[in-house]
C-alpha cells in the first residue's frame, strides 16, 4: 500500500528538493511506500484532503482544525523554535509610520497563505480596516507582494515574516516595516492521517531523533529546520482553539 504525503503550498520554493529528500528518508526509515504530492495551491490541496487522498501532511495551522476534527488527523511534530509570524510593510517613502494611521480604501497585497493573511488582517484592525474597507490584491508569491508595493500598485503588504526576512537587501531597503507579529504559538505541524496512525509513535520517535545523525541532520538543514519537536494532542487542540478565536 502506498501512502500519500503532501506539504502546505506555502513552503519556500527553494525547499522543494529538501521535501523530496525528506520523503525518501522517511520511506527508508519506515520501510513504507510514501508518495510525495505537491499541490499548486491551497484549493487543490483542500480538494485532495476532502477526498481522503492524504495520509501525511506538513500542514498550515489554518487547516489543522479541519484535519483533526473532520478527517481524524493527529499531530506528530513541528519545527523546533519556529512559529508563523506576519509583517505589515509599506514603501520606504510612505509617510505613514503607524498602522492606526492607515486610511480606509487602501490597497493591501497578500498571498493565499491563510494563516499569514489572517494575522495580517488582525494587525490592520486598529486602523478599523476590514476586508470590506480595503482593496485586496492577491499575489502568488511574497516577492510579488513586495513588487506591488515598490511599483505603487499596493499601499501595504502582508508578508510571512520569514519570507520578508529572506527578501534581498536591495528590496528590503525600499520597504518599511509597520508591525511584526509576536504570537509565538501558531505553527505548521506534520500531521498523520487515520490510515497511517498505527505507525504514529514509530514515526514520531524517528523524527524527534532525526537531528542525531549527521546525514539526516543535513536533510533537516535542507528544510530550514534545526530539529523536530513533538506536538501532543492537547497542544494541537489549544492551537485549534486559538485559530478558531482569531478567525472570528
Amino acid at each position: 500500500m502506498t501512502f500519500n504525503f503532501t506539504v502546505s503550498p506555502d513552503f519556500a520554493p527553494d525547499r522543494l528538493s529538501g521535501w523530496y529528500i525528506f520523503n525518501t528518508w522517511l520511506q527508508k526509515q519506515t520501510d513504507s511506500a510514501i508518495h510525495l504530492e505537491i499541490y499548486p495551491d491551497f484549493a487543490a490541496q483542500k480538494a485532495a484532503i476532502t477526498s481522503d487522498k492524504i495520509d501525511l501532511i506538513y500542514a498550515n495551522p489554518y487547516d489543522a482544525a479541519m484535519l483533526v476534527r473532520e478527517k481524524g488527523f493527529l499531530p506528530l511534530v513541528k519545527s523546533a523554535g519556529s512559529s508563523d509570524e506576519a509583517i505589515l510593510a509599506v514603501h520606504r517613502d510612505n509617510a505613514i509610520i503607524d498602522v492606526e494611521a492607515l486610511p480606509s480604501g487602501i490597497r493591501v497585497a497578500h498571498t493565499q497563505d491563510p494563516d499569514v493573511r489572517m494575522i495580517g488582517m488582525i494587525m490592520l484592525e486598529p486602523s478599523n480596516l476590514t476586508s470590506d474597507t480595503l482593496q485586496a490584491i492577491n499575489c502568488d508569491t511574497y516577492i510579488l507582494v513586495a513588487k506591488n508595493i515598490l511599483q505603487n500598485k499596493a499601499d501595504v503588504g502582508i508578508f510571512l515574516a520569514q519570507a520578508y526576512d529572506d527578501l534581498s537587501d536591495l528590496v528590503k531597503k525600499q520597504l518599511k516595516v509597520l508591525v511584526r507579529s509576536q504570537i509565538s504559538v501558531i505553527h505548521h505541524s506534520l500531521m498523520i492521517g487515520p490510515k497511517l496512525q498505527a505507525k504514529r509513535e514509530e514515526i514520531q520517535n524517528l523524527l524527534i531523533n532525526m537531528h542525531g545523525s549527521a546525514k539526516s541532520k543535513e536533510i533537516l538543514d535542507s528544510l530550514g529546520f534545526s530539529c523536530w519537536q513533538k506536538v501532543d494532542d492537547e497542544e494541537m487542540e489549544f492551537m485549534i482553539d486559538l485559530m478558531d478565536t482569531l478567525a472570528i
Partner: peptide
C-alpha cells in the same frame, strides 16, 4: 470560546488583540 473535548466543555480560551 468554549474548549470542547469529546463533546464536553472543559474550559475556555480567551484571546485579546489590539482594538481600534
Amino acid at each position: 470560546i468554549p474548549n470542547i473535548r469529546k463533546g464536553q466543555v472543559v474550559g475556555y480560551t480567551s484571546v485579546r488583540r489590539k482594538p481600534s
